[in-house]
């Protein structure tokens, strides 16, 4: 199989093309920018957190298909999650992309398995991780406040 095919699986391309979560949230109580300076991936993540629940999440910005597909999957996965579960999910995604782990994903987050192949492309891991690292910054901020 061609390595390019592994990187550009159908699920990734579908998530990349989806515009459902590509929007700003008016009144989001958390906004965070994430940038990969060398490639120009530049996103902004919006989260509405009520109590301990992530009630809404979206993103805006520019980036490659891996970056934007991963951001879309993030939105689909963490919407409705508790902050603690989102943090746990961050750890699973990071383990999968940077530590060769094969984690279990909760219901509704199974698409994330499709980006496991990105771990074979070290320079692209930062594209897939950008939205997740940005999410983590927000989660850290909620923990601090």
């Amino acid at each position: 199989m061609n390595l390019g095919d592994d990187l550009y699986r159908e699920i990734i391309l579908e998530n990349y093309k989806s515009t459902k979560n590509r929007r700003a949230i008016e009144g989001a109580n958390f906004r965070q920018e994430g940038v990969n300076p060398s490639c120009g991936d530049d996103i902004e993540l919006y989260l509405t957190i009520e109590g301990d629940q992530i009630s809404d999440v979206s993103y805006e910005g520019m980036g490659c298909s891996i970056c934007l597909a991963s951001a879309n999957m993030l939105c689909e996965a963490v919407r409705g999650m508790s902050v603690a579960d989102a943090r746990d999910l961050f750890g699973r995604v990071r383990g999968m992309l940077t530590n060769n782990e094969t984690p279990e994903f909760p219901e509704g987050a199974e698409d994330l398995e499709a980006i496991q192949g990105v771990s074979q492309f070290p320079v692209r891991v930062k594209c897939a991780m950008l939205s997740w690292n940005t999410l983590r910054q927000i989660l850290d901020e909620t923990a601090a406040s």
Binding site: G4, L7, Y8, C64, S65, C67, R124
Partner: peptide, 8 residues
């Protein structure tokens, strides 16, 4: 995106 082009 250019990174997608580069990867292919």
């Amino acid at each position: 995106h250019s990174h997608d082009i580069g990867a292919i």
